[in-house]
Write a protein that binds this DNA or RNA. Structure first.
Lengths: 133, 133
DNA sequence: CGTATACTTGCATTATGACGCAAGTACGAA
DNA sequence: TTCGTACTTGCGTCATAATGCAAGTATACG
C-alpha cells in the first residue's frame, strides 16, 4: 500500500494507513459496554445516585435477575466505567465520573482534530505515521 | 415508589425515578453504532480522510464484502454519525464531526453534572423531577 | 435499447450477547 | 459449625447482529 507520511490522506484507504488520536480514542470496548439499554439504565441510576452502591441495591432499579445485574456491573467495571470495591461479602460499585468524561472529551477532541488537520497539514503539519497495529 | 423531588436520591432505586440530562445523553443507539470493530474502522478511515467518500472507496479500507460496508455506513448514518448524500448512482458519506463531538461533550457534561449535583442540591438546587418515560 | 457501474436487499449461516434459573463460592453471625 | 446473606458462575435458550453470496435496483453511458 502506498505510504502517506507528510500529506493528508486523499482516500479512505490511504487514511487507513495513518494513525491519529482517533484510532486510540475510538475504542469499541467502551461503546460496547454502553450499547445495552439495561446496562445504561443501571449506569444512569448509579450516576444519579452519586454514592457507591451494592449489587443488590442496583438490582432494585429494574426487573432483571440479580445475576444479570451482577454481570452487567462487572462488565462496566471491566470497561473502566465503574469501579468495584469489595468489602466482606458486599461489593460497592461507583461511577468513574472523571474517567468517563475525560475519555469522551478526548474522543471529541480527536474527532475535531481530523477536521483541523487539513489546514494544519497544508501549512506543514505533523505528517501521517504508518499504521502499526 | 417513593417520589423524590427536592433531594438527591439516596439509593439507585430512588435515582431511577429522577430524570437528569444524563438520561437523554446516554443513548444506547449511538453507542451501539460505535460498538462494532469493523464499523469503527470504517468510521476512523472516513474521519481521517476528511472528505466525503463513496461506499466503494470506504470498502477498500478493510477486507469485508462491499455489501457489508454498505450496511455499516447506512447504520452509522441512521445513528447520526455520518451524513449521506446521493449523487447519481454514487453515495457520498461524510463524518458529522460537529454532531458527534457535541454529543460526546454533552454526555461528558451530563456525567459531571451528577457529581456537582450533590453540592448544588444541598444548597437548594433544582430538585428531582419524576420519571416520565 | 443494451450494458456497465454503484450500490442495496434477501437470505442462509454463524457468532455474539442477554437472560433466567440453579448451583456454587465467600463471608459474616449466632 | 451451621445457617443466612451477597454475590458469582455454569448452562441452556432465545434474540440480535455480522457476514458473504447472489440477485435486485437505479443510474449513466454508448
Amino acid at each position: 500500500m502506498t505510504q502517506v507520511r507528510n500529506r493528508r490522506p486523499t482516500s479512505p484507504k490511504q487514511a487507513a494507513a495513518c494513525c491519529r488520536p482517533i484510532d486510540d480514542r475510538l475504542d469499541p470496548g467502551l461503546f460496547k459496554a454502553l450499547s445495552d439499554p439495561t446496562r445504561v439504565l443501571l449506569l444512569a441510576c448509579l450516576a444519579k445516585c452519586g454514592r457507591p452502591s451494592t449489587v443488590s441495591e442496583v438490582a432494585e432499579c429494574c426487573a432483571v435477575d440479580l445475576s444479570v445485574v451482577s454481570r452487567h456491573l462487572a462488565l462496566l467495571a471491566d470497561a473502566g466505567v465503574l469501579d468495584a470495591r469489595k468489602e466482606g461479602r458486599t461489593v460497592w460499585y461507583h461511577v468513574r465520573y472523571e474517567e468517563i468524561s475525560q475519555r469522551l472529551r478526548a474522543l471529541a477532541d480527536a474527532i475535531e482534530e481530523c477536521v483541523q488537520t487539513r489546514a494544519r497539514r497544508s501549512a506543514g503539519g505533523t505528517g501521517c505515521c504508518p499504521k502499526t497495529r
